[in-house]
């Protein structure tokens, strides 16, 4: 066990304003600060000595970061929303089923009740299971500091293994994305070393809309665990978009997507297996749509 670092200050701010001021002040002082949401990543990393914050800001009390809300055209999810809350939300089920499908397979009920959207983005892991769904939904990450507010497309926000675009004085408020066209299908498939409570070897999210004539009107595909960040399969999307979805086209897409990324071999899986599963997951997802009629 690495030596534990003494935590010098532990704050429980009541408002976003208060939180932002704390962040600004601490950033000036130069002490390492960590926001604590569900704690399901941060505690693991602190125990392993990969993170040694001197100051903890627990954002449990920030009700402003809590809700799931809709406008005419978009949905917004607060950073403090947990996976369990996403799973229970009829709004998410109706407009962004791909999120529900993914949340169902994140950890197990204990993790689902603690882990949050903000924490997932803060960690920015290539195996974060919520990121591929957010990619295919074209989500934007909403960040705020004392004197700035930014909307960052999720694809730009995640930058590398454990790296994101967040500035030290910024708080993630939540994510926002346009409502997909009615009738668009969410696809999800996750593979890990076991069937629950598992870290993805490969994960796949898709948002596909077929028009009346089975033509692909909208196609966004994203994968986790095959690159340093979760990533869109742009070439394969281009191949499929505007085409009539047929078994032959699906097979072509399967072959193409296997070559689109350069996954690695690590202790969880191999390069060649990951490539192949990218194809199998895509084919199974799309074939399912064809069979649904």
């Amino acid at each position: 066990m690495p030596e534990l670092v003494r935590i010098e200050d532990y704050h429980i701010p009541q408002t976003v304003e208060e939180t932002l001021e704390l962040l600004a002040a601490e950033t000036k002082r130069g002490r390492e600060v960590a926001l604590l949401a569900g704690g399901t990543d941060i505690l693991v990393r602190m125990r392993e000595g990969r993170m040694q914050p001197r100051v903890i800001i627990q954002i449990e009390a920030l009700d402003e970061l809590r809700g799931i809300t809709e406008t005419e055209t978009s949905l917004r999810i607060g950073a403090r929303v947990t996976f369990a809350e996403l799973l229970a939300s009829p709004l998410i089920e109706r407009h962004a089923r791909v999120i529900s499908l993914a949340c169902f397979e994140i950890g197990a009920p204990q993790i689902q009740s603690r882990g949050t959207v903000g924490g997932q983005l803060g960690t920015a892991s290539p195996v974060g299971d919520l990121i591929p769904p957010l990619l295919v939904l074209d989500a934007e990450v909403l960040c705020r500091s004392v004197d700035d507010e930014r909307r960052i497309p999720i694809g730009d926000f995640v930058k590398g293994v454990g790296k994101n675009d967040l500035r030290p004085d910024e708080l993630i408020l939540g994510v926002e994305f346009p409502k997909p066209p009615p009738g668009a299908h969410g696809l999800w498939h996750k593979m890990g070393p076991r069937r629950a409570q598992s870290i993805s070897k490969v994960s796949f999210a898709g948002l596909v809309h077929l028009d009346k004539r089975k033509r692909v009107a909208l196609c966004r595909l994203a994968y986790g665990a095959v690159a340093v960040t979760a990533i869109r399969a742009r070439e394969t999307e281009a191949l499929l978009t505007s085409q009539a979805l047929t078994p032959a086209l699906i097979r072509e897409a399967q072959a193409l997507v296997q070559t689109e990324f350069s996954p690695i071999t690590d202790l969880r899986s191999t390069e060649s297996y990951r490539r192949k599963m990218c194809g199998v997951m895509l084919r199974r997802g799309l074939s399912g749509l064809l069979e649904q009629g």
């Binding site: 076991r194 069937r195 629950a196 598992s198 870290i199 969880r268």
Partner: peptide, 9 residues
Amino acid sequence: NYSLPTAVD
């Protein structure tokens, strides 16, 4: 990383 079976496995 040492994966043990869960109930669903």
